[in-house]
Amino acid sequence: MKPTPILKPRQSVGVQIVQNQSVLVLPALLICTVFIFIPAFLTIFGSFYAFGLTSQNWEPVGFGNYVRAWNDDVFWIALRNNIIIVLGSIVLQVGIGTVLAAVLDRGISFGQTFFRVIIFMPMVISAVAVALIWLIILDPNIGILNAIVKSVGLSPPKLGWLGDPSISIWMVLVVAAWQYTGFMMVLILAGLQAIPNHLYEAAALDGARGFRAFWSITLPSLRNVLVVAILITTIGGFKVFDLIFVLTNGGPANATQVLGTYIYLQAFTLTNMGYANAVAVVLLAIAVFLGWLQLKVSRRS
């Protein structure tokens, strides 16, 4: 048998539709330049001027805005609050997330999907809705937290959970943990499930089971995932805006002010655009450093 050639070689030389491959990168580059790189540059540029929301008059002030930030107590409170949120979120979200992930991965024998779905669920709800729900739960008059606390015979804080400056930041941490712990759990669970089972089998033959196996097999294998989880939480902790804006708007008396809400306050409420830019540059520098760190870590894995 010899099939007759159906497919004759075409006579024309194939024309490459795209002569220069970099053309395909241009749209992405253009969009990012217009909406990311130029604004980033203008933020830095604008931080050396004083100007209002609509004013055409840009007054050069040199490092004046940075000096102002240095002497601004609220700026330092905001930065401190960001750090509190970062550290608290690492402890709560990554900590509880790791424990939950470990339990779901090897601790319990059925119902993993069920629990995973429930615990992850808040992640898909907008932070605004989350904040509004919790705003009412924590409300001193109608909130159920008060009702629960009263029903066990304790007295809730007089100024309210969010109204008391010494408590409010911790409440923010609780709400953030409510929303994002499931995300961390899922992230870490994916890392756990990537650990090959034969490692555990080898460990079992060596006599390591249970907590011992978790300590000597699971945690070392999870190192990279944990570092990424901590970095994501850290970046999120510095960028936080929605949750606090709706829950407390930085109050009471700046007790929950963070860089995000402070930039917004200075820029759009007090219309100190130049000063807002200077605070934004601080946030930008932190975020760029952390983002660079994250890419470096994840590329290694």
């Binding site: 497919l7 030389v13 194939g14």
Partner: peptide
């Protein structure tokens, strides 16, 4: 008989 040195893969048969 055809010089294929610079032909694209789909034209070489």
């Amino acid at each position: 008989e055809r010089d294929m040195t610079h032909e694209p893969p789909w034209d070489r048969g």
